[in-house]
Each structure stands twice: as structure tokens, then as C-alpha cells.
Design a protein around this nucleic acid. Structure first.
Lengths: 130, 130, 130, 130
DNA sequence: GTGGTCTAGACCACG
DNA sequence: GTGGTCTAGACCACG
């Protein structure tokens, strides 16, 4: 799995890294039971601080995407370990509401908006065939 | 138009305020040509800092949602003044990709994900009938 | 409220600080709605690093003892905001099991063990009368 | 006696193992005079590092629960070999204080708290009938 | 070798 | 002024 970070972005590095790993899990390029690289080695590969990687791993654990195993390190959880909890649904809906409003102001009609949602969902989901 | 802010949220106040106003414009409760309240009065009503409101207004201007007029203050622009530029589309797609990946990990299937997208788009769009 | 840390202890500082603050809340010397000192000022008072204090505050938030308010900082939650969840009960029982076993080996009988539990509970609870 | 370790726990393995063995002694499933398995065989059975088992055995010795004998290995000491020293009482009270405070914040009243203490003490003590 | 803890220091977003 | 983010570096517990 290849991770790319945008060091110029205002999105925090730990958050970008989180997104990349979750995408890897969703795509299936990271399989359940697989271990993520050690904090140190990933930090080295990405040329970022190990604390930054550690923060990402703690977040992944908190959200239920990995568990921290004493010997295997951060292990990818099987799909569905993270639940679509009411809290998650609310968070997602808040973000979608913001995107929808912005899109409406920019005159994207419903069909165009949904086409983006659909194609991106499929792009991520279909990543497993790669 | 009623604006509610969550002081306990991770989302910065200026950003929440931006979202609320854009939603108001998208819903049609803020009409083109209308003026937003003055920075001072809105800050007073919401009990927040002048700088915060000012930052929101500058952002709204930058994104093409309002025009800052010397006398009328921040004036809502007609729909389509903000464009669905490639930059915007990229930003939206990055956020959607992140939401889609997280949703896939939480076992929301395509139909469920799109249903959320659709119903929220309609909720915002339909706000104009209020 | 007075906080004392043991810099020699093997119990991490952030954890000792957590315990002290939770005790303050339980005793009633920290009242719901009150704000904790800022990360910086408490770190200064205790002569520890601000990251250490920050870690404690994040933990207090995660456990439901405080909420982080954009303006007021870390605010003590009303009693019962943190719940006696099954997860908490398990954690408590694991620790009690360990203490009970050790006490049995050291020939504390049930009455003596329970007397310790009772008197310490009352000591903390009764702290509110101080 | 069956030992189970949780590799996903925050509690170090050597500490979990210590707890399990002390519990075995308290319950009476490990009898005075009995030898614990050799470091090597226990490490093998549990698939953990030799150092980990060794650290546990040293700790058991230090706390007075076993005696390290050149031929018989770690031998369970008679009850009361480990004393309820002032140091032990302080350590126990610090932990109970922490549990009591957390429980009070989570609105466990004295009766509920003591009921947990009592039932767990009896569960461990009564383990001897197994 | 690995992660956890702690420190020190810096910059910036936020308000 | 305040917290969030990031870096660098150190030490130690764990295995």
C-alpha cells in the first residue's frame, strides 16, 4: 500500500495519514489481520515524526479500525469492527450537509452531486480489484 | 435565519458559521441581494469574537458567496457566482473519498451511502420552501 | 484544589494527574461547570510539560469527566455524565480482583478488606464537606 | 491452573501473568510447596518471551509469594509469607482511592461499590473450593 | 527492536 | 492568551 501525504496541505498530517490508511482498508489493499508497519519505520518512510504516526495509530484504534496487539503491533480489524454508530452517522451527515449546501450554491444539481458520490464510492470500493 | 454554534465541537467557530450561512444561501432563506448582519451585531448576537465573524465573512467573499460592499456590508451573491471550479471539485472529492472509505469500513453499502447523500441534498435544497 | 504529584513514582505523571482531578470532582472540590486551569498554567504550577497536562485533559474528556469548551477550556461535567458502563465495570472488577487476590495472600480477611474499601469510599465521598 | 493473557490489554503481560498466579494462590488452586512450571516451559505454553516469565517470577519472589529454589524452581510459599505491610496497604489504598473516586463520579453509591468489592473478594476466596 | 512517556521548543489557528 | 500540531530527542518498560 502506497501512502502519499501533502506536506503543504492545511489538513494535519496525522489526519491525512488516517484517511489514507482507512482508504487502504476500505479498498482491501490492507487486509484484516495484517499488521501496519511499526511507528518508527512508517515515520522513517514518510519522513515525518514518529509521534505524528503514533497519533494516527491511536486514532485508528479509537475508531475501531485496528487493534494494538502487544506482539503484532497495529493489526487491521475485520470489516464491521468499526460500526456505523449514531455518532458516526451524525458526523457524516454534518459533513455531507456542508458539501451539499456548498454544491447547491455552486449550481451542482442533484444528479451531478449524486454522480460524484456514486463514482467515488465505487472507486474506493472497487479498489479491492486492484 | 437562525444560526446555532456548537462550542464543544472540534470544528472551529468561524467554519461552523461559514457552513451555516452557506446553508442559508443554499436553502434560499438568505436571498441574493440581501445583506448579512454587520460583523459587530452578529458577533454580539452570537456572543463571539469580532475576529471570528470577520474571518467567516472574508472566507464567504473569497469563495464567491458574498460581496463586501462599503455601505451594505456583506451582500449575498446571486446563485452561480460561486463556481464549481476544478479546485472545488477536487476539494469535494477528497472529502467524499474520505467519507466513502470510512463508510465502507463501517459496512454501509452503496445504496445506504447514496441514500444519505440524496436525502441530505434534498433536505438542504428543499429548505427553500421554508 | 491542591494537586500533588510524585515525580519518583512509576505511575505516569499524566495518570497521577488524572487521578487527582477525578478525586477532586468526586470530593466536590471541583464543581460541575467550573473550568480547569489552562494547560499552560497548570503545567507551569506543577513544573511539568504542557503536553503531559494536555494528555491528562484529553483523557478526562474521553472518559466523560470534562468537556472541552472553545471559550471556557476544560469544564467539569455534572455527576453522572460519565456512566458506569459495562466497560468501566469490567475494568474496575479486574482491578478489584487483583487487589482481592493479593489481599487474600497477605491474609487480610473479608472484614478487613471491606473495611478498607468502605473507609476509602467514605473518605473520598465525604471530601465534599471539606 | 489455567492462565489466560490478553495481548490487546494495556496491562503488561508480565503483570497479567503475575495477577493470574497470585489469584491461583489466593484461590488455592496453587498450593503451598507446589512448584510453578519452569520459566522455559511456561513461556513455551503461553508463547511468550522467556524474559517476560522471568520478570513475573522475580516479582512474585520479591513480593513474597514464591521462593526461588535451585532445583524445584519457583515454589509457592505458605499463606501469610507475604505480609500486609504498611507499604502494601498504602499501595492498595492508593488504588482503591482511585477506583472509589472514579466510581463516585459514575454515580455508583456506597452499597453498589461495596457489593462489587464483596462479591469479588468472595469469588476469589471461594475459588479454593474448585 | 518497539511503543510509551516525558521534555523542550516552535509555529500557527483560533478567538 | 490558548490549544493543536509537529518536530527532535531522550529514557525506559516491554518482550
Amino acid at each position: 500500500m502506497i501512502v502519499t501525504l501533502d506536506y503543504e496541505s492545511e489538513v494535519p498530517l496525522y489526519s491525512q495519514l488516517y484517511d489514507e490508511i482507512v482508504r487502504g482498508i476500505a479498498e482491501g489493499s490492507m487486509k484484516p489481520g495484517e499488521s501496519l508497519p511499526s511507528v518508527r519505520s512508517l515515520a522513517g518512510d514518510l519522513s515525518i515524526n514518529l509521534h505524528t504516526v503514533n497519533k494516527t495509530y491511536q486514532l485508528l484504534k479509537q475508531e475501531g479500525h485496528v487493534l494494538i496487539h502487544r506482539q503484532k503491533g497495529a493489526v487491521v480489524q475485520p470489516p464491521g469492527s468499526a460500526k456505523a454508530t449514531p455518532e458516526y452517522m451524525e458526523r457524516m451527515e454534518r459533513q455531507l450537509r456542508s458539501l451539499a449546501a456548498e454544491s447547491i450554491c455552486r449550481q451542482l444539481d442533484e444528479a451531478q452531486f449524486l454522480e460524484s458520490c456514486r463514482s467515488i464510492y465505487r472507486e474506493v470500493k472497487g479498489g479491492s480489484s486492484k
